[in-house]
Design a protein around this nucleic acid. Structure first.
Lengths: 275, 275
DNA sequence: AAGTGGTCTAGACCACAAA
DNA sequence: TTGTGGTCTAGACCACTTG
């Protein structure tokens, strides 16, 4: 944890963004409370407060960072929603865990998720077609009758091993971009972000489904065998749907993890381990 | 939506709790922002703002309820985390959906979940034993070597149909209470709450598992057949584990649903439908 | 009794969207 | 240009926990 106050400061959200971190992104992009949150997160995962230790009081943190208590509370709310710390009236906050998934982007991007585990992501395009949207697709993507969609099917691999079949339906605006991509582009999410298409909200549904012929062929499993299915509808900041996707994982390759509390919750996807 | 300002008000959190609602609980228990949130939630689900309509500005709501803008924002943050409304700089908030799971308690209680769907929950006790905790259980429940646990296995039914096998490990403090219960008590969660044992935080992990002999016998499925597994560790406000549970659902009976955004997310469990 | 987080207020400036 | 949500401040009182 930096021992001194953060640079800049001062009322309002100054434009002095300060992209401190060298490599990746984040690092409290923009707002003050994000910077404080990023700094505290690092301090916690570094073990600066101990495994099940206590955080300094809100007031102390406020003074330390040279910000108001409100800003500190905003930062702590982020950490709380990630399941990193508790919060209870009358007592200092307690460190719950020193390691946990945090980056929201990992949730929506297979590629990022793979990298975060130290695996090499791969994508083998099976098909990409443009056709009229059916009723369900119109419903999910809020399209009008007659509108078309782009449907893409890809086999996803982790370090060369087949893991998941991805079947994604894009509205025209997004699909046009994806269809132009070379087949060897692994992360569509990254490309779309560069085109100004943002992923900010998602609804996920997780259940079991039987493998169909395509699934069996691509994944090399038995037809009718069980797969873990995640269906996901992603929207941009406007609330406009940008993707309606169905991912089917081989059993044993993935588990979905959720932390929730009375106030907040955070979802993460991680490789199977625990038991 | 109530047209007038809420009663009481005034700085600080007055003790005038006002348990407005007649039957259930909630109804903005305690704090002002919860009351505002509860009121707005009702207005939204009633359709007062239209299906994909817009909410009044924060300032307008503040004046309408006679509270500060900060309090209104706190209330709106709750609705946002439930996926009811969007939030984007520069524009009024948009209503995302008029119906969605909201009650946190439904997540942790099979019984409540069943009722919310209009089904009759059932529980058939298979076994309840007390024995020394193994290493994994000690880890999950933060017990010391030599400590004992209570292990309960129950078949859960919806309107008489077998749906799920529940295998729950309790620490002594909690297990002693559960072990005393008559075998026909359906909702252990409710009973524990009356004993002052609160469920406030939970970590969930969802994956696929093969049915073992017990699962097959209780659920009437094929041994080795696929089951949707949810593992869950629940803690009280202190961060102390109160339950370590493993639920195994028959395929097709349940799906897990998550809404998340850059800021917050909410988990819900619901019967299979959609698609 | 002292310390800590929970809640609330009043006012301010900024970034972004839409007219 | 105007309105809206995002962020920040400074101060206040309260409820709960702990010594």
């Amino acid at each position: 944890m930096t021992d001194v106050a953060l640079e800049s400061g001062r009322g309002g959200a100054g434009p002095e963004v300060a992209a401190a971190g060298a490599s990746g992104a984040e690092r409290g992009a923009g707002s003050l409370y994000r910077k404080v949150a990023a700094d505290l997160r690092e301090a916690i995962t570094t073990g600066a407060f101990g495994e099940a230790g206590r955080l300094p009081a809100e007031g102390a943190l406020a003074e330390q960072y040279g910000v108001s208590r409100g800003t500190v509370r905003q930062a702590l709310a982020v950490l709380r929603s990630d399941g990193l710390v508790t919060s209870r009236r009358g007592t200092r906050r307690v460190v719950l865990g020193t390691a946990r998934v945090q980056s929201f982007s990992e949730l929506l991007s297979f590629t990022r998720w793979a990298y975060s585990m130290g695996e090499e992501p791969g994508g083998i395009l099976d098909s990409m077609v443009r056709r009229p949207a059916d009723a369900a697709e119109r419903e999910q993507l809020r399209l009008e009758p007659g509108d078309e969609v782009y449907v893409m099917v890809r086999l996803r691999t982790l370090s060369g091993t087949p893991v998941m079949v991805e079947r994604t339906v894009y509205p025209p605006r997004v699909g046009e971009i994806v269809a132009e991509l070379p087949p060897d582009v692994v992360s569509h999410t990254e490309v779309l972000r560069e085109h100004g298409i943002l992923f900010t909200d998602a609804d996920h549904t997780i259940d079991i489904v039987a493998a169909n012929g395509d699934d069996a062929r691509l994944l090399g499993c038995r037809r009718g065998g069980p797969l873990l299915r995640e269906r996901r509808r992603t929207t941009d900041p406007t609330g406009t749907p940008v993707e309606w996707s169905q991912d089917r994982y081989l059993p044993g390759t993935v588990a979905f993890s959720v932390h929730n509390s009375l106030a907040t919750s955070a979802l993460s996807r991680h490789a199977r381990e625990m038991d």
